[in-house]
Simulated scan of single mutants.
Amino acid sequence: MRDGDESRAGAALLDWYDRHHRGMPWRMPPAAKAAGARPDPYRVWLSEVMLQQTTVATVRGYYEKFTSLWPTVSDLARAEDADVMAAWAGLGYYARARNLLKCARAVLKDHGGVFPDSAEGLRALPGIGPYTAAAVAAISYDEPAVVVDGNVERVVARLWADETPLPGAKPVFTDYATRLTPAARPGDHAQAMMDLGATICSPRNPACALCPVNDFCAAHKAGIAASLPRKMPKPEKPTRQGTAYLARRRDGAVLIETRPPKGLLGGMPGFPTSGGVGPEIPPPLPAYWQNLGEVRHTFTHFHLVLQVMVAEVGNNATPWTGQFVAGASFDPAVLPTAMRKVWDLAAAAPAP
C-alpha cells in the first residue's frame, strides 16, 4: 500500500463490511449501530475471550449457553466456580475460564458491574491483555484502539507486501494497523478487518478478486499474497507420557477429582492422572488395574499420550484422592476434552 492510501482503503473496507458483515450472536449490525444501538461490552468481552485460539463455529454454542445462564457480568461474577468450569468444558485453554471469573468479579466489586470505557481501564482488569482491551474498547465504545489478531496481521502484511517473518514482525504489523485504523467507526473497522481475514484474505488461496481493497494491496499486485505473512519455522512439539486411572464402583459411581486451580486443566474435573499433566503419583486406590490402551490429545505446546487404566472396586473402596460420584449424577460432558477421550475409550471397551 502506498502512503496516503490508508483512508481510501479504510473507506472501501467499511463499505464492504456494511454490505457483507458476518452475522454473529454477539455482534451489533452496522445498521443497528447507525440507528443508535450500542454493543454490550460484557457480551463483546465474553465473545473475545472465547474466540482466543478457537473457531467461531465452536464458540457460538458456548456463548449462547453462557449468556443464557449468566446474562450479565454481575450474574457471571456471582456464579460458582464449578458451574462455570463445567459450562466451559470442551472449549479448551481452561485458564481463560478462570480469568473470566476473576475479571467478572473485579468488574462487579471495583466498578459496580460496569466495564471501564477505555482500553487503558480495561487493561487494568485481571485476565485482559492488550488485544482484548483494544477489541472491547473499539467495538463497545468506538475508541480508536488498534485491534491486531492473526487475521489483521495477515491483511496488513499483504497490503504492504511486507515479507518480515512473524513473530518478529508483530510491531511492524501493529504500526500498519494503526495507520489504517480510522477515527470514525473504529469498532466496525476492527470487525471488518477480522471478517476480511476470515472470509476473503484467508491463509491459503485468498479470494483476491473479491477483495474490497485489492486495488491498494501491494502483495496482490506482486502476485505474492498467498505466501504472506512469512513465518519462522515452529519448533516440533514434544510428547509427554502419562497414565489416567478410571475407577468405577460396583454401584456405578465413578472416581473424579478436581484438579488444582493453577496449571494445566486447572480447576477442571477429571480422572486421577500420573505424569503427563502433573506429578508422578501411585494409583488412587488398591485394585486390579487393567490397561485399556492409550488416548492422545494435543495441547498448545505439547502432545499428550495417556495410558488408560480401569478398575472395578467395591462400594466401600476409599481412594486417597478424589471422590466417587454417583453414576446417575455423573455427566461426561463436563470433562475437558482430554479426559472425555479417556471416558470414551473406557465406555467403548467390551465388558470384562
Rank of each mutant, 00 (worst) to 15 (best):
E6R: 13
S7D: 13
A11R: 13
D15H: 13
W16H: 12
D18H: 07
H20F: 11
R22H: 14
G23N: 10
G23T: 10
R27E: 01
R27H: 05
P29E: 06
P30E: 03
A35W: 05
A35L: 09
P39D: 12
R43K: 14
S47K: 02
L51T: 01
R60D: 12
G61N: 06
E64W: 01
K65F: 05
T67L: 07
T67M: 00
L69V: 04
L69A: 15
T72N: 04
A86M: 01
A89Q: 09
Y94S: 13
Y94D: 15
N99G: 07
L100Q: 04
L101V: 13
D110S: 15
G112L: 01
D117M: 02
G127A: 07
I128A: 01
A135P: 05
A135C: 13
V148Q: 06
N151D: 13
V152D: 06
E153C: 02
E153D: 08
V156G: 02
R158M: 10
R158K: 09
W160T: 08
D162M: 05
E163T: 14
E163L: 10
P165V: 01
A169L: 10
P171R: 02
V172D: 05
A177M: 04
R179Y: 06
T181L: 07
A183S: 11
P186Y: 02
D195R: 06
I200M: 08
R204N: 12
L210P: 03
N214H: 11
A219F: 00
A219K: 04
H220F: 09
K221M: 11
S227M: 03
R240M: 07
R240P: 04
R240Y: 14
Q241C: 09
Y245K: 02
Y245P: 04
A247D: 13
R248P: 00
T258P: 09
R259E: 12
P261Q: 10
K262Q: 15
G267H: 05
S274I: 03
L285H: 08
A287E: 14
F299K: 01
F302M: 13
F302C: 08
L304M: 10
Q307I: 04
N315I: 13
A317K: 02
W320C: 03
A328C: 04
K341Q: 12
A348R: 09
P350C: 05
